[in-house]
Design a protein around this nucleic acid. Structure first.
Lengths: 214, 214
DNA sequence: CGCAGAATGGGTGCTACCACCCATCTCCCC
DNA sequence: GGGGAGATGGGTGGTAGCACCCATTCTGCG
């Protein structure tokens, strides 16, 4: 019997996924959570084999929750549920230790298949997604484009978050009690690392990365 | 027997909603569509009492499809399904003649209730949404803030989309074959209408509004 | 007809953003 | 002990973003 914790901010989606999963005799949903924080909370009281985690959620996002969860002693397996066929999310999911990455556009039998594959320990992407995602990945490798393992430093993440929230450099400098110049230095480094040109792109990136909410 | 057409781009969501609805003996889902165009297509061959329409979809959005559908001779009732507790969408939905507006964060019994209410002809919003949406609405009225029936014009939407994508004014001007000054004029108007200060906020807004992907 | 709103475009000026250059200090690791 | 990486800060300069001012044209509507 595979015990599952279901995490999605939309009750309707949660309910639907639950109905789909529970049509299988060997799958049981032992809990639900409406955001990342609730999920982490729920794991303290529940014995869970697999957490099905929506990526885009308010407060603590799925990716943040995933980082939290994998820090536990015997972490359950993680399966990320995503709206988007998006490389950024995909790689980020692998980075945080997810076993699977499934698009919400998959059919229900594929979801069940994905759950079983995740439990067998097969790291995988839903094939439909695999197409464009893996293609991209391989393309970049071939072009020597240095796949974005170039993660930002903690400080840079912090600054990025504030920039993406629309705060000005002066504002951020005051907040972090550093000089405007240093904020600009960080911003320049972030832009360079991510290969971007301005704040709006950083905003979108921060949203994708789960640093801020849209 | 209430015959329902289900329109959502995510098969998983579609499947879940279908399971929820079909637990009721008097509700039957007679068709599914993955986007607005498919929905319009499907309506040509099906007798349908109610269309449950997701708002954010690729190609033709739910709102566009709704406009299309209400142009028919005997249009079915419309119920909009939305991810976001967002005034913009809500008012727009009313404008296109939807009978209901339900957030995906509602519980399943509420969805069923919403379907029944829509069929009884009660124009309504799911109460939970009603709370913050109507509260906002009334608050603004009270403050004399001219409620955002001041939706953006088509041209402004177009410019907003490009700004939010990180394009520069010069770039946008070239694209639309208008002067940089006019782009800046539009930007200023958009910022004023939405009560925002800079491009990063516009980016987040555009993502919330479904104009662009993160 | 006249009026309102939308779209167009011009001018002026401040400031933030962003791209380059430079340096110092600390911490960690070989 | 030396070297690399990260955080800090400074200078200089171009340009885009944004806030004000202004006007013209066209369209739909009472």
């Amino acid at each position: 019997m595979i015990r599952i914790l279901l995490v999605d901010d939309h009750a309707l989606v949660r309910r639907g996924v639950r109905l789909i999963l529970e049509q299988e005799p060997d799958l049981t949903v032992v809990g639900e959570a409406g955001d990342g924080a609730e999920a982490v909370e729920a794991l303290r009281d529940l014995e869970v084999d697999l957490v099905v985690l929506d990526i885009a959620m308010p407060r603590m996002t799925g990716l943040q929750a995933a980082r939290e969860i994998t820090r536990r002693r015997e972490p359950p397996r993680l399966m990320m549920l995503s709206m988007h066929d998006n490389e950024q999310y995909f790689f980020e999911s692998l980075r945080v230790g997810a076993s699977g990455y499934v698009l919400k556009s998959v059919a229900d039998e594929d979801l069940v298949g994905a759950v079983r594959a995740a439990m067998r320990g097969e790291a995988f992407v839903y094939p439909g997604a695999m197409g464009s995602l893996a293609r991209d990945y391989l393309d970049r490798l071939r072009r020597g484009e240095s796949v974005p393992q170039t993660v930002l430093t903690e400080r840079e993440d912090e600054v990025l978050k504030l920039i993406a929230e629309g705060r000005s450099s002066k504002d951020i400098a005051r907040d972090l009690t550093i000089s405007v110049k240093t904020v600009e230095r960080h911003r320049a480094n972030i832009l360079a690392k991510l290969g971007m040109r301005d704040r709006t792109q950083l905003t979108r990136y921060a949203i994708r990365a789960g640093l801020i909410e849209p």
